[in-house]
Design a binder for these strands. Structure first.
Lengths: 187, 187
DNA sequence: GGGCCCATGTAAAAAGTTACATGATTAA
DNA sequence: TTAATCATGTAACTTTTTACATGGGCCC
């Protein structure tokens, strides 16, 4: 999807930014939190970790705890951190908003790890504006098809319009919260 | 995903319910309408049509138009229609609402082809209820994590909550519209 | 002793993406 | 005539899914 990394791989990198985890720990997070749009099956996670290790984005340390089976703990490397941050700073495109808004949300969720608070603001403004543009586009499409499309098709379009409007509203809200948050944190 | 058919394949079947199409025509629809969450690349569409034909769900007729290159027109078969309708009538599950709401919306968009108007109503009620349940779940999660999660994570959760609330609202609206539509169509 | 959760993997199959390849028709 | 659009496919590659496989620790 980006740099040859899939969004799952970035999700793993993002999780490792908060602290080291075992493969099983990562699986459990995908399984039990709303973050887990991703499959938590071993066939997904372990090969992904292997690839990330081959690329030098994560490192594995064997944690030997008194004799028995050694747990394998993963941590993000400097290169991994740089790769993640580069991804977080990518511009918000129309296609991303249209086709993969959940990936944009994943990026936003990890933006705490950026030093620059302005980056968040820019992201949200772009997300809001692109979403607003998308609302207009779907609305125009609906208007054009109104006479020929069956009622269920129109209602499905309405769902898209309402959902995208909710995103615009959310972005405005998030901007307000962040501005307050940052101004109160400064002095 | 279902019956060994992917949602893309069902999308193609649904499109063919409205009328016959060429492979290129299908590609253009995915490319230019909001329906197209799917890739419209030839490498996606043509192999999918091949598979559908092998399974006997669509048929191909060569339309010879005066000598030159024959266009290949696809139509849905009886078996394809039955397969599609079986898919449309599947119950709305929690996991579908959580992980693949856009597929549920695709199903809804095609439900015009069901004879039974009650099926639509049942679908919407279930969709609304499962979405409302999901709102509660994410809200509870957010409440539990409120103190430990960074602000961006919380805001990302808010986006999920608002988006899901929008779905609840939409379903209620759609139910109203459909009830009015059906009662006015009867007498 | 049996069942459940922790924990880590592999193997086969299948779908989708990207890129390649080709040719007809139409509009500038 | 040349560029764009119509039109149909194939091939290699990669990720993911599903299923298999194994073993330790803990609680009843």
């Amino acid at each position: 999807m980006n740099d040859g990394l899939t969004s799952l791989w970035y999700a793993i990198l993002g999780l490792l930014m908060a602290g080291n985890l075992t493969g099983y720990g990562i699986r459990k997070i995908f399984e039990t939190t709303p973050l887990g749009t991703y499959s938590s099956s071993p066939g997904t996670i372990y090969p992904a970790l292997k690839k990330l290790r081959e690329k030098g984005l994560v490192a594995r340390t064997e944690m030997e705890s008194e004799g028995s089976a050694a747990k394998k703990v993963f941590c993000i490397t400097g290169k991994g951190e740089k790769t993640l941050k580069r991804w977080l700073l990518k511009p918000v495109t129309r296609d991303q908003v249209r086709l993969h808004p959940e990936i944009l949300m994943l990026r936003f969720a990890f933006m705490d790890y950026l030093n620059d608070p302005q980056a968040k603001i820019r992201f949200l403004e772009a997300f809001r504006d692109e979403s607003a543009r998308l609302v207009k586009e779907i609305t125009a499409f609906r208007e054009a098809e109104k006479e020929v499309m069956p009622i269920n098709g129109l209602l499905a379009l309405d769902s898209g319009i309402l959902g995208t409007k909710a995103k615009v509203k959310w972005a405005s809200y998030a901007l307000k919260v962040l501005r307050k948050f940052h101004s109160s944190a400064k002095p």
